[in-house]
Design a protein around this nucleic acid. Sequence first.
RNA 1: GGAGAGGUCGCCUAGUGGCCUAGGGCGCCGCACUGGAAAUGCGGUAUAGCGCAAGCUAUCGAGGGUUCAAAUCCCUCCCUCUCCGCCA
Length: 436
Amino acid sequence: MSIGLARLREEPERIRQGAIDKGEDPSIVDAALALETRRRELLGESDQLKAERNSASRQIGEAIRAGAAPTGPEVAALRKASTDAGTQIERIDAELAAAETQLEELMVRIPNPADPDVPVGDESANQVVRTWGEVLPKDVTANGVQWTRRPHWEVAADLKMFDLERGAKITGSGFPVYTGPGSRLQRSLIDMMLDIHTGEHGMTEIWPPAMVNAASARGTGQIPDKEDLMYIVTRDELYLVPTAEVPVTNLHRDEIFEADQLPIRYAAYSPCFRREAGAAGKDTRGILRVHQFDKVEMVFFEKPEASTEALEWLTSRAEVILQRLGLAYRVLLMATKDMGFVQAKKYDLEVWAPGVERWLEVSSCSNFRDYQARRMAIRYRPEPGAKPELVHTLNGSGLALARTVAAILETYQQEDGSLIVPEALKPYMKVDRVVR
RNA sequence: GGAGAGGUCGCCUAGUGGCCUAGGGCGCCGCACUGGAAAUGCGGUAUAGCGCAAGCUAUCGAGGGUUCAAAUCCCUCCCUCUCCGCCA
């Protein structure tokens, strides 16, 4: 469950409206509410009976210690009382377990209500909140010479930066092989991003496992919701991570922080594996949609009162990377029906790729409020000794590599077929230009 | 992969069927003592659910079983450590 039973009881209207805004069925909220009432009744009865049974058992021990015969009538009566309670407990607990299972099934289908400042509607209601950089044209006229920017796969083939055919041979389509300067570019981008996030933004670097267990996949909601998205190693019950969000957020599952430990801000590189089921035929050329790519992910654990501002900062940290790379981009505030089930507010960063003349999503920055934290039981003490409260979690790419690479190739390609290395990458690439 | 040892309240540890409703130490918090501190003494110190409250219920790695009653006995699984094997 993810929105919390207390909140369900306290503000069912807001939750019902939240479901409607996200295009989900609001009747689930009413069904859950009714089931929750029933659950509490059963729980009360069960607790009462358990108290009776415990009391009878305790009295048997006391009676025997006081000298009563273990087979005598006094003990027999107590034993019967305990057994009778036990029989009823069995019955009620079975009913209770059924109610809880049902309730949980309903609760996971209730979405996290969007923040009040999120536009209501489908993707047509998404708002462009800002753009940065020059949106380059495909056709270029410079110094009287006319040429046309090519799509990234042509630039890459020309400069031998990646090899999609051989990737398909050794693994399958959608598994690119980066070669020579292409491989070096991957390494440089990861290095540069981590350097900026740790050195300038004060985040702690994490290098997580690329596979997680079922409990972790459940924690961030990959199962059961998005099971089709993931590659699953059934023999060992492990899941290849679709994003570093999964291992990194789960780092603190079932933990309680002290207030002075927050915020905790991580930057993590990981490869990302996505089956992309149902996406066959879309973006089949180049590296815009692949099954394995690399990404630096930012994951924040914040005090509730700080999370609104933290999302703005998180988003701006992803923008810093695009700015350093000199890539034109825009920031979209996603509307309720386009933002996802668990997010309260989400910004997408789209980079301009002049070769394919498209905006490419390279980052998605979200505030989950306490929705994820509840599922994973990540809490903190507002004051020393105080009752633990849920933290707020946020995450955002900073950035996903494959599409960033595509934008770099298409933005920095030259008329002569070479590629200028963006200023910020030169110290990592060790060259100013990639040539044939 | 094999053999052995072990997983208890933040940490260490006691606990082999019923005053364990989990004891002790460390750490931490409060109070006392002090000019201030150390030392010392007293008290407090897990999480969740239910209840106006007193309190009740659950949790001793996880799950199941035996029993009137399980931290304790039985079964399955997970993890950690030591040794061996294999191996980047």
